[in-house]
């Protein structure tokens, strides 16, 4: 075998004094995140994107009768955002759920945790890796949508305008108004808030799933419970409603409802995507608050995940 190790091992090993690794080391988290990213990408996640592209392309060529130009543009956005949403949620849940069990199965968890890696770093790195993939996919998908929407807007609007110009009684002001109405549903900067909201939602979903996977007995359990919490998380308002209305509700049910509302994130908040797609004006302050809420959820669920994971044995 090689003799090159002889001298180096001597010098490095012997004098190494126990240096406490920082609790959170960005470079360590980053390397865990990038490995997760590479791992997930090489699992051919990109095929999803291809399918997405196809769907959007189909929508682009699909013009159901009776749709106005504004409606056509809006359906392109609606369908694209729905696909982005579903993809992000499925991906965030599934990939987060398989990470820890897979590491355990491959014993990579042993090799990672037997390096000077605090367990918080491990969790953070994993979560970040998943979110990096989600983010990258959202960017690609959004770029694709933007391109399609832009082309569609140009083609449809100019066709419609030349049709309108033929109309009797058409004055330039009306024409301008109608064009504005159509273009309102076209490509605009505030539309970028939609993938952002989807990403924030994916953050929370991934954090919740990570928490579940720290104690779940199987990946399937994690995925199912995660999906259930995801759906329950859309029921916050109605849970409140039911609790308010139904005064003679079972005390146990009422308590349970309250607990659910307190513990499960309110995922309905992130459905602002609908409003953004409908070209409603977006207040950046509200998006900032949404970001804040996301941060609180993520930190909260990371914290409980860490509590479970901290002295977990493998």
């Amino acid at each position: 075998m090689s003799d090159t190790t002889t001298s180096t091992a001597e010098s490095a090993g012997k004098d190494a004094s126990p240096v406490r690794p920082p609790l959170i080391s960005p470079s360590r988290i980053w390397s865990l995140a990038t490995v997760t990213f590479t791992q997930l990408l090489r699992m051919k996640v990109l095929y999803f994107m291809l399918i997405f592209g196809l769907i959007v392309a189909v929508i682009f060529n699909f013009n159901p009768s009776g749709q106005t130009v504004a409606q056509q543009l809006k359906s392109t956005k609606d369908v694209s955002f729905a696909v982005m949403n579903v993809f992000s949620m499925l991906f965030a849940i599934a990939s987060t759920a398989i990470l820890i069990p897979k590491d355990l199965e491959d014993r990579t968890l042993y090799t990672i945790l037997s390096k000077p890696v605090p367990r918080l770093d491990y969790l953070l790195g994993r979560l970040m890796g998943v979110l990096m993939v989600v983010g990258a996919c959202l960017i690609i998908m959004y770029a694709f949508l933007a391109l399609v929407l832009f082309v569609q807007e140009q083609i449809l609007v100019s066709a419609e305008l030349s049709r309108l110009r033929e109309q009797p009684q058409m004055d330039s002001e009306t024409l301008l108004n109608m064009e504005n109405d159509m273009r309102k549903q076209g490509l605009h900067w505030p539309l970028l808030y939609a993938p952002l909201a989807i990403f924030l939602k994916a953050c929370v979903v991934a954090a919740v799933t990570l928490f579940l996977s720290t104690f779940a007995s199987s990946t399937l359990f994690t995925i199912i419970v995660s999906a259930m919490l995801f759906l329950i998380g859309h029921f916050h308002k109605s849970t409140y409603e039911v609790l308010m209305e139904d005064t003679h509700a079972n005390a146990v049910v009422a308590l349970l409802g309250k607990l659910v509302v307190l513990a499960v994130p309110n995922f309905a908040l992130f459905n602002v995507v609908d409003g953004i797609a409908a070209a409603e004006p977006v207040d950046p302050m509200l998006m900032g608050q949404l970001f804040l809420v996301t941060a609180v959820y993520t930190v909260l669920y990371l914290l409980v995940a860490l509590i479970v994971f901290m002295d977990k044995e493998f």
Binding site: A16, R20, S114, K115, P116
Partner: peptide, 8 residues
Amino acid sequence: VVSRNQVG
């Protein structure tokens, strides 16, 4: 976690 500095 400090003890892991020295271990493989």
